[in-house]
Amino acid sequence: MQLQVKIFTVNKRFPLTISRGTTSQTTNVWVSISQDGIEGWGEASPFGVGNHSQSTEKIKEALQEIAPILQPFSPFQRQQVEQALIAVQAPSAVRAAVDMAMHDWLGKLVCLPVWQLWGLDRHLIVPTSVTIGINSPAAAKARARDWLEFTDVRVFKVKLGSPDGIDADRKMFLAVREEAPNLEFFVDANGGWSLPDAIAMTSWLADLGIKYVEQPLPRGQEQGLAELKARSPLPIFVDESCFTSTDIPQLANYVDGINIKLMKSGGLTEAMRMVHTAKAYGLQVMFGCYSDSSLANTAAAQLAPLADYLDLDSHLNLINDPFTGALIKEGRVLPNDLPGLGVQHSASAT
């Protein structure tokens, strides 16, 4: 199979601030594989977690290096391709893009959407949360109003872990809740709390009807999760602490759920493994995203019927998304009936 790479930049309608910083623009990579006149698409998005960083440049270089490695393979050979890319230590975002593209190629070959190839039921897809980043209480309320006017919102994910401390977190959260008192809320601290602050905040948030708290402690401080779980009245999910299925066994006793992202996991194949591993340990699962376009989020939506929670909203905050794919209906990100991933380039979409 032949590999092609194109770079594209997407701009956020509203910049997003989390505990680690602010982003308003990202440069992602569009990957296509072709064989027998069929082209499959995937996306690689840059991300960073602690000392782990996959930049656009690193992704692009890795894709150029693996192009000759992929040439002898067919898109049917996903297992062999995955092992070949792991052997050369290809970044997980690169593996994700290639894996997406191979699934897309297969669906297009047999003229079926990927979710249907897996026998999944779109009626089981839950509403996605949409994200409100760290900001002043007034700005956070304004952002909530923007979301409510822009799309059919059912769930807000509120980013906490403010560098100004948990008092600032409390004020901002109450402001958002005041703006949308009837919605469901999730909270994501992105590792921005210390253990004492996490204990205090989970107790405080529990009285406000929060569903769960995501990544309360920084990656690398997982030893504190046991005490936090014992004292938290809310379920604890991890994101930055869990990349692949091999991370789940050592976390399972200390958390209630995991956030699966295609860029971390290395693609749909590993994401499916993570779902099954998590469920075997009695954990809940959610699917999340980085600054992904409709291409990657539509790929993740193929697995959405298996998720307890969804946070696939990054494409909704883009002003120049080059792709169209999954539909938004009643707050849910629904994969369509087109073959493969069901993604089209915006310029040619109908």
Rank of each mutant, 00 (worst) to 15 (best):
I86R: 14
V88F: 03
A90H: 14
S92D: 07
V94F: 00
R95P: 04
R95Y: 01
A97L: 06
V98F: 01
V98T: 02
M100E: 04
A101S: 10
M102T: 04
W105R: 04
K108D: 01
C111L: 15
C111I: 11
C111H: 08
L112H: 11
P113H: 09
V114T: 14
W115R: 00
Q116N: 12
Q116C: 03
W118G: 13
W118L: 15
W118K: 09
G119Q: 06
G119F: 09
L120Q: 08
R122T: 15
R122Y: 04
R122G: 01
H123L: 13
H123I: 09
L124A: 09
T128W: 06
T128I: 02
T131P: 06
I132N: 12
G133K: 04
G133M: 05
G133D: 09
N135E: 13
S136F: 00
P137V: 04
P137H: 01
A138D: 03
A138W: 07
A138F: 08
K141Q: 14
K141P: 04
A142R: 05
R143Y: 10
A144P: 00
A144Q: 06
R145D: 06
R145G: 00
W147K: 09
L148Y: 07
E149P: 03
T151G: 09
T151R: 15
R154M: 05
R154W: 09
V155T: 08
V155N: 01
F156W: 06
K157H: 03
G161M: 14
S162Q: 15
D164E: 14
D164G: 08
D167F: 12
A168Y: 06
D169F: 05
F173H: 13
L174S: 14
L174Q: 12
A175V: 10
R177K: 04
E178C: 12
E178M: 14
P181T: 14
N182M: 15
V187P: 06
V187L: 03
A189W: 01
G191K: 12
G192Y: 06
W193Y: 11
S194L: 12
D197V: 08
